[in-house]
């Protein structure tokens, strides 16, 4: 599955995939590099500017990877959340009664 997959079906998007893992790592790197990057850049240190640019690169990659998936999850979940609640309630009630 491509890391920059854009056409997620709701079914695919429900699963935890490598996209979540890579986006999470890039997200942490963005925060980490921004912390030292902004401070270093404000002090006009070369390492600060390098860290800041790397932070921005990580951020762009992160959004490119995770945004299509989040869109697919959101569109589907918000549309059906009420239906989920009612159906899950019905089925689990039946299952609990059956076990007793």
């Amino acid at each position: 599955m491509s890391l920059f997959k854009r056409d997620w079906t709701p079914i695919e998007a429900e699963e935890w995939t490598s996209h979540d893992l890579v986006a999470s790592i890039l997200s942490i790197l963005t925060f980490f590099l921004a912390t030292i990057g902004i401070a270093g850049a404000l002090l006009l240190q070369t390492w600060g500017w390098v860290a800041l640019v790397l932070s921005m690169v990580c951020m762009v990659l992160m959004f490119k990877i995770i945004d299509p998936k989040l869109r697919a999850i959101s569109t589907d979940f918000e549309k059906k959340e009420a239906k989920y609640l009612a159906e899950i309630d019905r089925v689990t009630r039946w299952e609990a009664g059956d076990e007793r």
Binding site: A34, G37, I38, A39, D67, L70, R71, I73, T75, E78
Partner: peptide, 27 residues
């Protein structure tokens, strides 16, 4: 937040702005 995506971005952006602010304060 109105969707899962909005909730994710709200938390991410709020946290990032906090990191940005901390660096200004630190210097």
């Amino acid at each position: 937040a109105k969707t899962v995506r909005d909730a994710s971005y709200a938390i991410w952006a709020g946290g990032f702005a906090t990191i940005f602010r901390n660096a200004f304060w630190a210097v």
